[in-house]
C-alpha cells in the first residue's frame, strides 16, 4: 500500500438549506478522509447528499447553504469552510479541481477549447496563453486527444461527448492539483466511451499520484475504480470500507440491498431481482432514529428510537447500523 498521508479530512460536516417548507438537512454529521494517491468513491442514490458533500469541499454550494458551527473540512492543514472567498479561489482549480457530469454545459461555448484549458494556468501561474500553449498541447496528449495542435481552436460543439469530457479532465489537471473531484464523470456517456474515459482517469491517477473523490451511483464504476468506498443514505454516511470488503462482505443492509438489486452481466440471469422496498425518504420528513428503518428488513424497535453512530468494525471499515450483517449473510442469497 501507499504511505498513508491524509490529504483531506472532513469532520462533522453538517449543512442545511432554507426552503419554503422549512430547513432541509442535506448532510448530517459527515466525517471521512482521503489519503494521498487514493481514489475514494462516494455512492448513493439521488438526494443522499453526495453532491452537496463534494461541493462543500470545493466551496461551490449555493450561497444560501448553512453549515453547522463545528463543521470542519481541512485540506493540507487549512480549514476550507471558514476560508475567505478570495483564498478559496486560489485553491479551486489549482489544488482542488472538479469535473462534472455534463461536459457540454460546463464548457464555455464561446471560447475555443485551447484557451479554456489554458485559463487555470494563466490564472494560477500567471503564464500568458502563448507560453502555456505547449503545456495545453501536452495535457491534450495525456488525455488521449489525437492531433492536439489541430484541436486547440475547436469549439466545444465541434467535439463529441467523450472528447468534451477529456477536455474537462485536461482542464482540471492543468495546474497539477492534488485532489480531483469527479461528479458522475461518465454517466452521460455511452458505454464504450465510458470505458475509454475511465481508462484515461486510471492512467492519469497512476502517473500523477493525484487523489480522486469519485461521486457516482454506478456500482460497476465504483468496483472498477475505487480504493475505498463511502455509502451515503439520507444525508449520512452509513458504511465505509475498502472496495473489496464493501462488495464481498457488506455490513449495512442498505449496501447489501444496493448490491443485490443490480442485474449481473456474468453468469445466468436470476429470475427476479432482489429489491429494496419503498423509496428514499423525503429529507423534510426524515424518520426518528435510523433513516433506513422504513425500508430495512432487519429493523427493530431500537432502530426507530435511536439513530446508530458510524462505528469502526473489525474489517477496518465503519458501519452505522444497530444490526450489522454477519459474514455468512452474503452467501445465503434468498430471493424475496
Amino acid at each position: 500500500m501507499k504511505n498513508r498521508e491524509k490529504l483531506l479530512e472532513v469532520k462533522h460536516l453538517q449543512a442545511c438549506f432554507p426552503t419554503q417548507r422549512g430547513e432541509v438537512k442535506a448532510i448530517n454529521d459527515v466525517s471521512f478522509s482521503i489519503d494521498k494517491g487514493e481514489i475514494v468513491a462516494l455512492v448513493g442514490e439521488s438526494g443522499s447528499g453526495k453532491s452537496v458533500t463534494a461541493l462543500s469541499v470545493i466551496g461551490l454550494n449555493t450561497p444560501s447553504i448553512k453549515y453547522e458551527k463545528n463543521s470542519d473540512i481541512s485540506f493540507k492543514g487549512k480549514n476550507l469552510i471558514s476560508m475567505k472567498k478570495k483564498q478559496m479561489k486560489k485553491i479551486r482549480g489549482n489544488e482542488i479541481s472538479m469535473i462534472f457530469q455534463d461536459p457540454l454545459s460546463s464548457l464555455n461555448p464561446l471560447h475555443p477549447i485551447g484557451r479554456q484549458i489554458a485559463e487555470p494556468i494563466q490564472l494560477h501561474q500567471g503564464l500568458s496563453y502563448i507560453k502555456s500553449r505547449e503545456k495545453v498541447i501536452d495535457l491534450l496528449k495525456k488525455v488521449g486527444i489525437p492531433e492536439p495542435e489541430k484541436r486547440l481552436k475547436d469549439y466545444p460543439h465541434q467535439l463529441s461527448g467523450g472528447m468534451r469530457q477529456r477536455i474537462m479532465i485536461a482542464m482540471a489537471l492543468a495546474c497539477n492539483p492534488s485532489l480531483l473531484i469527479a461528479d458522475e464523470p461518465t454517466t452521460a456517456l455511452d458505454v464504450t466511451i465510458q470505458a475509454q474515459i475511465l481508462n484515461v482517469m486510471r492512467e492519469l491517477q497512476k502517473d500523477t499520484g493525484i487523489s480522486i473523490l469519485l461521486i457516482t451511483h454506478d456500482l460497476g464504476v465504483v468496483a472498477e475504480m475505487a480504493d475505498r468506498v463511502l455509502v451515503m443514505y439520507g444525508g449520512e454516511i452509513v458504511e465505509e470500507g475498502d472496495v473489496f470488503s464493501i462488495f464481498q462482505n457488506p455490513k449495512h443492509p442498505y449496501t447489501e440491498g444496493l448490491l443485490s438489486s443490480v442485474p449481473k452481466l456474468r453468469g445466468a440471469s436470476e429470475n427476479r431481482l432482489r429489491t429494496i422496498p419503498g423509496t428514499v425518504p423525503n429529507p423534510l420528513e426524515l424518520p426518528k432514529g435510523c433513516n433506513f428503518q422504513t425500508r430495512c428488513s432487519y429493523a427493530t424497535e431500537q432502530c426507530s428510537d435511536l439513530s446508530p453512530q458510524l462505528v469502526s468494525n473489525e474489517m477496518n471499515g465503519k458501519v452505522a447500523c444497530w444490526h450489522p450483517l454477519e459474514k455468512v449473510n452474503k452467501k445465503v442469497t434468498n430471493f424475496v
Binding site: S160, G162, M163, D190, V191, T192, I193, Q194, A195, Q196, L198, N199, D218, L219, G220, V221, V222, A223, E224, A226, V243, F244, F247, Q248, L259, V262, K264, L265, R266
Partner: peptide, 26 residues
C-alpha cells in the same frame, strides 16, 4: 464483444480483467 466488455462490473475482483477497448468515437 466490445459492448459487453465495456460494461463496468460490480465486482472489484474483476477490475484487472482484459478488456476490449474500442478506439475512437462513434
Amino acid at each position: 464483444a466490445a459492448l459487453i466488455s465495456a460494461v463496468p462490473e460490480p465486482d472489484p475482483t474483476l477490475r484487472d480483467r482484459e478488456r476490449v477497448l474500442l478506439k475512437g468515437d462513434l
